[in-house]
Computed example of a mutant assay.
Amino acid sequence: MSVTAGVALAVADAVWAEIRSAGQASDEHLSILEALFGKNMVRACKILDEGGVRRVTGAPSGRSLFLVMGESRRKEEYICFPEHLCTCYSFFYDIVGRGEQLCCKHQLAARLAEAVSKHQDIEVTDEELAHMLAKL
């Protein structure tokens, strides 16, 4: 990771912490995140506004992942770990492959949804959660 990317992620982490603490994202927060993540942040907000983020939690472990809706006509749903991984094409192409982005719009939507508690919660058994992950 470059120094610039590291600084950007540190700034973003501080903003996410402020949003979580306040329970809402101010215009200033969103402006900073948009400056860091560009069009991906705008698209993430659209996904969140459309109710496209679900958190799936396994019981009894409490482990969780996010299912985030895509924007295409097919409305695919991507498995997402906000700080680490998304199953979308952009994550593997733009982030892992080319290193052009810090994260995808689905990761941003999941992080924002979690920070402001604007996601649908679904509880499944740990076995069901494992089956979801096995499809990766």
Rank of each mutant, 00 (worst) to 15 (best):
Q101F: 04
D27A: 14
A8S: 10
E127F: 07
E83K: 06
I79P: 02
H119C: 13
V68E: 00
F81V: 13
G51R: 11
H119P: 03
K105V: 02
K39V: 06
Y78D: 00
V53W: 02
L65C: 13
V56P: 08
S90W: 10
Y78S: 00
E34T: 15
L67W: 03
D121H: 09
R54K: 09
E28F: 13
E123D: 11
V124N: 12
Y93D: 09
H106T: 00
Q120P: 05
R63Y: 14
Y93N: 13
S2I: 09
A25H: 09
R63P: 02
L48A: 08
A10Q: 15
L133Y: 13
A44R: 01
L30A: 05
C86F: 04
E71R: 04
I122V: 09
S117D: 11
A8P: 03
M41C: 09
L48Y: 09
I47Q: 01
Q24K: 11
L30M: 10
I47Y: 03
R43S: 10
D49Y: 02
H84S: 12
R73D: 12
V116P: 11
K75M: 07
V42D: 08
D94Y: 11
T4Q: 04
L108F: 00
N40R: 06
D49R: 09
G52S: 02
S31L: 04
A113H: 05
S117E: 14
V15G: 05
H29Y: 02
E18N: 08
V53G: 02
R98M: 06
D13P: 14
T87Q: 08
F37A: 07
A8G: 07
H119F: 15
Q107R: 03
F91W: 15
V7P: 08
I95D: 02
E127P: 01
T87N: 04
A12D: 03
V42K: 14
L36S: 03
G6P: 03
G97Y: 06
R54V: 13
L33M: 11
M1W: 03
L30Q: 08
F81D: 05
T4F: 08
L112N: 01
V116L: 13
H131W: 12
A113G: 07
Y89W: 14
C104N: 03
L85V: 03
V116D: 09
A10E: 13
V53R: 00
M41E: 12
R55P: 01
R111Q: 14
